[in-house]
Amino acid sequence: MAPLLEARSLCKAFGAVTAADNISVAVAEREVVGIIGANGAGKTTFVNMVTGYLKPDTGSISYQGRDITRLGPRATARTGICRSFQIPQTFARFTVLDNMLVALNVARKRDLFFWRPAHDAELDAVAQGLLAGLGISGHRDQIAGTLPQGVRKILDIAMAMVSAPKVILLDEPTSGISTDEKHAAMDTVMNALGERGVTILFVEHDMEIVERYAGRVIAFYDGRILADGAPAQVLSDADVRRYVVGGELHRRQPRKGVA
């Protein structure tokens, strides 16, 4: 079966620094892919290239067989590829509901309507349903800038979901969320996305999260792909353990001889 999303030989350099060196990834529909790598490995550069924020120096990206390499973020979003951000990108002075209403109006191509109100009962109900599905409907009237980091992260994801994307890229969805809340937040998000049949690529540093939610793991190192495969296979790869996750995995093992 042809892949839903395919990046071929992507290269990107910022001056002397090579952020992507011949990256090739093919993702099938409904796949859940965890992207791991140390800081500076090229994970976010890859996400930025796929979502149109950065243009690769060479290589190409295709989605549903269509070349999207030169599309910007807006056009990429319109094709059905959306994203969330490491630092949540919300409208800080709007309420949670207003954030959702802006996203909904854009998703429904009403962004150039200048007379009818942005807010109506039907849109309100849709927004409320999405917020409830992600467990943050209790915050609907709170100003986004005052939300706890975990809620803001979920709002960021909720805004990406309103256009019913086929593919979503989550950039460190659990960073900044307390250890206790991480799994609950990921359960909620992954269930909501899974129910909608969304193909997911998520960048993550927490290997427990990666093992638990990813059906496939891609390990980045120094702008290259170090390993790509099933979680157990990639996370036990000697190079991956050495360059990417060694510390993380070892920390999780109970130390012998320690009372």
């Binding site: 994203r83 990108q89 409208f91 996203a103």
Partner: peptide, 16 residues
């Protein structure tokens, strides 16, 4: 108003 707060997010939502 959203552009005044976070233009990049507006673009990522699919609006110009």
């Amino acid at each position: 108003e959203a552009i005044a707060q976070n233009e990049i997010r507006v673009e990522y939502l699919g609006s110009s």
